[in-house]
């Protein structure tokens, strides 16, 4: 089989311009994209840079975009793509800085971020000296699921926050954090949550579920992040701004059954935060003038509010 490839190229160093190289390769019928890349490097263009390791789909090293879809070059077969005719486009995955060609900078993209979240177990000391800790396998299964992550980068590739803020810790590192938070052998929950609540941490996630949709291992990073936030809620949120926002939100629903957005905006910013409040003013003034913005003191109680408040109080008491 003959296949044509159009491969993203970029020389190392700032300021170098990205381009493309095209290659035509003769391949066996069962060839994968990495077979093609290896053949190109060996026979046509030794300067072509790309990564790969296990060749069988389990190590996550060779993630690239193939015809616009992120996947593993060792697991994607060439034949069906070649059959469509035209060139097969191979590009580095999104949201990651490129060092050279298809070689992305995993250090700043992922490894350094994982390093920040205290990525090791802090044993709780409950284990006896000579035996395993007795743990229900259902509990362990959740840890195993998190650890089936093979750092392929697809969740971060799909993330909607990273394109606007590369410093966001990202779903892959947050999933790693979840691995410890759901492990009953760990005792550092409070400390972990404090770390995760820092700016660029879990509160920066927009819970858009892109990560879960992109994860090839059904690890559900988004659900895990939501769960970690719920844990923070229980433990008392330590991120001041977020805490105020949540506090105001919860109070509003508790007091009236529904959300008082005017008060929420003000209270989230903080009543003593003059600069923050000033910033809201122009939009707020315009909104009020156009009959758009809610006016806090006009917010009234819903029927049934007392019943809703009772449920909230009950749930809080139960979970604390």
């Amino acid at each position: 089989m003959q296949a044509n490839f159009s491969v993203y190229r970029k020389e190392p160093g700032a300021g170098s311009k990205a381009g493309r190289s095209t290659y035509t390769v003769e391949l066996p019928e069962d060839a994968t994209v990495i077979d093609a890349l290896l053949k190109i490097r060996d026979e046509q263009d030794p300067t072509l840079g790309f990564r790969g390791s296990c060749l069988h789909g389990y190590c996550g090293d060779c993630t690239v975009r193939i015809n616009g879809k992120a996947g593993f070059s060792c697991a994607v077969k060439v034949a069906p793509l070649a059959a469509k005719g035209g060139e097969i486009a191979v590009e580095p995955i999104r949201n990651m800085p490129v060092i050279k060609d298809l070689i992305s900078d995993w250090d700043t993209f992922l490894w350094d971020k994982i390093d920040v979240i205290k990525p090791w177990l802090e044993p709780n000391g409950a284990a006896s000296l000579d035996g395993e800790e007795l743990i229900d396998d259902k509990v362990m299964a959740k840890v195993r699921q998190a650890m089936s992550c093979f750092y392929c980068g697809l969740c971060d590739e799909g993330c909607t926050v990273l394109p606007v803020d590369f410093k966001f810790v990202g779903p892959a590192a947050l999933t790693k954090a979840s691995r410890f938070l759901c492990d009953p052998r760990d005792h550092a929950t409070a400390e972990r949550l404090r770390i995760l609540e820092r700016p660029k941490g879990m509160w920066d996630c927009v819970h858009c579920f892109e990560a879960s949709e992109h994860c090839p291992r059904e690890i559900a990073p988004t659900e895990r992040i939501i769960e970690m936030r719920d844990m923070a809620f229980k433990h008392g949120i330590t991120n001041e701004k977020v805490a105020r926002h949540h506090h105001s939100f919860a109070n509003s629903v508790r007091n009236s059954g529904w959300l008082d957005e005017g008060r929420l905006a003000i209270e989230s910013e903080g009543l003593t935060n003059i600069k923050g409040l000033m910033k809201l003013l122009p939009t707020a003034a315009k909104a009020v003038a156009r009959g758009k913005a809610p006016i806090p003191f006009l917010h009234h109680k819903r029927p049934g509010a007392d019943k809703i408040a009772r449920i909230i109080e009950k749930a809080e008491a139960k979970e604390k």
């Binding site: 919860a250 059954g257 529904w258 819903r302 019943k307 909230i312």
Partner: peptide, 22 residues
């Protein structure tokens, strides 16, 4: 009319699941 806010993904599930079930 006599129902609550969904929680909007802000309030934790242990609170919102009961009020949404209601």
């Amino acid at each position: 009319k006599d129902v609550a806010c969904t929680g909007a993904g802000v309030l934790p599930q242990y609170i919102t699941d009961p009020i949404n079930a209601r």
